[in-house]
Simulated scan of single mutants.
Amino acid sequence: MRTAVNNLRDRFRTDGYAFPLDALTPEEAARALTDCRTYLRAVSSVGGAMAQYAMFPKIHLVATWADRLVHHPALLGLAESLLGPDLMVWSTNLFTRPAHSGGSLAWHQDAVYLGLNGYQEHAVRVWVALTDTTAANGTMRYSRGSHAQGALAHRWGGTHIEDIMRGEEVAVEVDESSSVAVVLTAGQCSAHHLAMVHCSGANTTDHSRYNFAIDYISPKVRPTEGEDSALTVRGEGGSGFLPEARPLSDFHPDAVRQFYAATARRQARIDHTVRHRSTT
């Protein structure tokens, strides 16, 4: 067991990622996918801020299926092997790619948008496949070892609508030969450093792709400025984040109030981070 943990930690430190990692059983993945689709229909019918923030950053605060995943023993064990025994969930995100959709994301890093101190050693994004994840359905591609460069400058790749939709891209050349496609079967996951340079492609298949991402952090992480919140899921939490509570049921009134407060707080911080980046 110790050897396996050390090997995982070494892979993560050297390459900036590790996959494929077994996490959910096929039955658990199928149940999560069904619950995810039900959740998306529900928030779409509600509309407003609930629909606006359906895909990020606090799904686990209102949806019991997401809360169940962030507490899954296999995922907690993975996060603990990389970060230590004290764990918080800072964010949850859904990444979907509909069948025959042409959308793609440029080479970029997540870290530059998040406004976190200490992410370099004390944070990990775990990307769980709720469906099979392949090059054909637009899975992520990692640029091996790119996390070691730290946070990089980003730029827009062009002025056409396609360039804008692809998002900002790192202002350095990416060695395509160093890239690797994150191929997973439903229930498996990958783990990557928040400074990992990555991209994703179009889905040319007849089936939609669903991935659920969890940002685990240790209490050593702090927001760069302003209030933020996180959910303690193992061990002790940290004083740098306001505490969050697990939902008693799907869309419980207390959970919804917490969700609205937490997402507003997070969006204010992200907006400030983006504005600061644009002026420096």
Rank of each mutant, 00 (worst) to 15 (best):
residue 1 M to K: 08
residue 2 R to H: 14
residue 8 L to Q: 12
residue 10 D to R: 13
residue 10 D to T: 15
residue 14 T to H: 13
residue 17 Y to T: 04
residue 34 T to F: 10
residue 35 D to C: 08
residue 36 C to Y: 12
residue 37 R to T: 01
residue 39 Y to K: 05
residue 41 R to S: 15
residue 43 V to L: 06
residue 44 S to E: 00
residue 45 S to N: 13
residue 46 V to C: 00
residue 51 A to S: 07
residue 53 Y to W: 15
residue 55 M to K: 08
residue 59 I to G: 04
residue 59 I to F: 05
residue 62 V to Y: 00
residue 62 V to H: 00
residue 65 W to Q: 05
residue 66 A to C: 10
residue 72 H to G: 03
residue 74 A to T: 15
residue 75 L to D: 12
residue 76 L to H: 09
residue 79 A to C: 11
residue 80 E to A: 13
residue 80 E to Y: 06
residue 84 G to F: 02
residue 86 D to E: 11
residue 87 L to G: 04
residue 88 M to C: 11
residue 90 W to I: 08
residue 91 S to H: 07
residue 92 T to V: 07
residue 93 N to V: 14
residue 94 L to F: 12
residue 94 L to A: 02
residue 96 T to I: 15
residue 97 R to K: 15
residue 99 A to E: 14
residue 100 H to A: 14
residue 101 S to R: 13
residue 102 G to N: 09
residue 102 G to P: 06
residue 104 S to G: 08
residue 105 L to M: 11
residue 108 H to V: 09
residue 108 H to I: 07
residue 111 A to D: 15
residue 115 G to I: 01
residue 119 Y to I: 06
residue 120 Q to P: 05
residue 121 E to P: 04
residue 121 E to S: 12
residue 124 V to H: 02
residue 125 R to H: 06
residue 125 R to E: 11
residue 126 V to H: 01
residue 130 L to P: 02
residue 141 R to W: 02
residue 142 Y to F: 13
residue 142 Y to Q: 08
residue 144 R to L: 05
residue 147 H to C: 01
residue 147 H to I: 02
residue 152 L to C: 15
residue 154 H to A: 10
residue 158 G to E: 06
residue 162 E to R: 12
residue 164 I to T: 08
residue 164 I to N: 04
residue 167 G to Y: 00
residue 167 G to M: 00
residue 168 E to H: 00
residue 169 E to N: 03
residue 173 E to A: 10
residue 173 E to R: 05
residue 173 E to Q: 14
residue 174 V to C: 14
residue 175 D to S: 11
residue 175 D to C: 08
residue 177 S to P: 09
residue 177 S to D: 14
residue 180 V to K: 07
residue 180 V to W: 02
residue 180 V to P: 06
residue 181 A to G: 12
residue 184 L to S: 10
residue 190 S to Y: 03
residue 190 S to G: 14
residue 194 L to Y: 00
residue 196 M to R: 00
residue 197 V to M: 05
residue 202 A to G: 04
residue 204 T to F: 06
residue 209 R to W: 01
residue 210 Y to H: 01
residue 214 I to V: 04
residue 219 P to E: 04
residue 219 P to D: 07
residue 220 K to V: 11
residue 221 V to I: 13
residue 222 R to L: 09
residue 222 R to D: 10
residue 223 P to E: 14
residue 227 E to I: 09
residue 233 V to N: 00
residue 234 R to V: 08
residue 234 R to E: 06
residue 237 G to H: 14
residue 239 S to E: 15
residue 242 L to G: 11
residue 242 L to I: 13
residue 242 L to M: 13
residue 243 P to S: 10
residue 249 S to N: 06
residue 251 F to P: 02
residue 256 V to M: 04
residue 256 V to E: 00
residue 258 Q to N: 09
residue 258 Q to W: 03
residue 262 A to T: 13
residue 268 A to V: 11
residue 270 I to N: 08
residue 272 H to G: 13
residue 273 T to P: 04
residue 273 T to K: 05
residue 275 R to Q: 14
residue 275 R to P: 07
residue 278 S to E: 07
residue 279 T to D: 13
residue 280 T to P: 05
